[in-house]
Computed example of a mutant assay.
Amino acid sequence: MNRNLRRHASHGARTFMHLFAASLLTVAGAHLVQAQTQAPSQSTTTRAQTKAELKTLEKNGYEPSAQDPHYPDDIQKAEKKASAGKGASGPMVNPQ
């Protein structure tokens, strides 16, 4: 009889831990979903401005690719070149 009580107690503790873990994951998941559905950054740059900036960078030598071994040097060179061509008044953001 004593052995059966220990088995029930052990099973109850495992069930509690599984429920606790499931609850914790549910709450964490809810927070992640909420964070993803909130408004994106309060940027004032429009999609058209971003596309225009990319075209300007491409005209000044930047070639975007997923496997670019020269990033960020190549984009920074293109930003400097574009800024020099516009008298530093163009839409380049953070040209370091």
Rank of each mutant, 00 (worst) to 15 (best):
N2P: 09
N2Q: 06
R3L: 10
N4P: 09
N4L: 15
N4V: 10
R6K: 14
R6Q: 11
R7M: 09
H8F: 14
H11N: 08
H11P: 03
G12W: 07
A13S: 12
A13Y: 02
A13E: 02
A13K: 12
T15A: 13
T15S: 10
T15L: 15
F16I: 06
F16P: 04
M17S: 12
H18K: 12
H18P: 07
L19M: 13
L19G: 08
F20T: 07
F20S: 04
F20N: 03
A22R: 05
S23E: 03
L24S: 09
L24P: 03
T26N: 02
T26D: 07
V27F: 13
V27C: 13
A28G: 14
G29R: 01
A30R: 06
L32W: 14
L32A: 15
V33A: 04
V33M: 04
V33E: 03
Q34G: 11
Q34A: 10
A35G: 06
A35V: 05
A35L: 10
Q38M: 11
A39L: 07
A39N: 09
P40N: 14
P40G: 14
P40V: 00
S41A: 14
Q42H: 15
Q42N: 12
S43D: 06
S43E: 06
T44I: 05
T45Q: 13
T46K: 01
R47G: 10
A48G: 03
A48W: 05
A48I: 06
Q49M: 00
Q49N: 03
T50C: 15
K51N: 15
E53C: 09
E53W: 08
E53A: 11
E53L: 13
E53M: 14
L54T: 00
K55H: 14
T56M: 12
N60G: 05
N60M: 04
N60V: 03
G61K: 13
G61D: 05
G61F: 00
Y62V: 04
Y62C: 04
S65E: 09
S65C: 08
A66Y: 13
A66T: 04
Q67T: 07
D68W: 02
D68M: 03
D68L: 04
D68I: 00
Y71S: 00
Y71W: 10
P72Y: 00
P72T: 00
D73T: 08
D73K: 11
D74W: 06
I75H: 00
Q76G: 13
Q76M: 07
Q76E: 06
Q76C: 13
K77P: 00
K77V: 02
A78H: 00
K80Y: 15
K81D: 05
A82C: 05
S83D: 07
S83N: 03
A84R: 01
A84T: 09
A84P: 04
A84Q: 10
G85S: 06
K86C: 08
G87N: 00
G87L: 00
G87F: 01
S89K: 08
S89E: 09
S89V: 15
S89D: 15
G90W: 08
G90V: 02
G90S: 09
G90I: 01
P91F: 11
M92V: 08
V93P: 06
N94R: 09
N94D: 07
P95C: 12
Q96R: 11
Q96N: 10
Q96P: 12
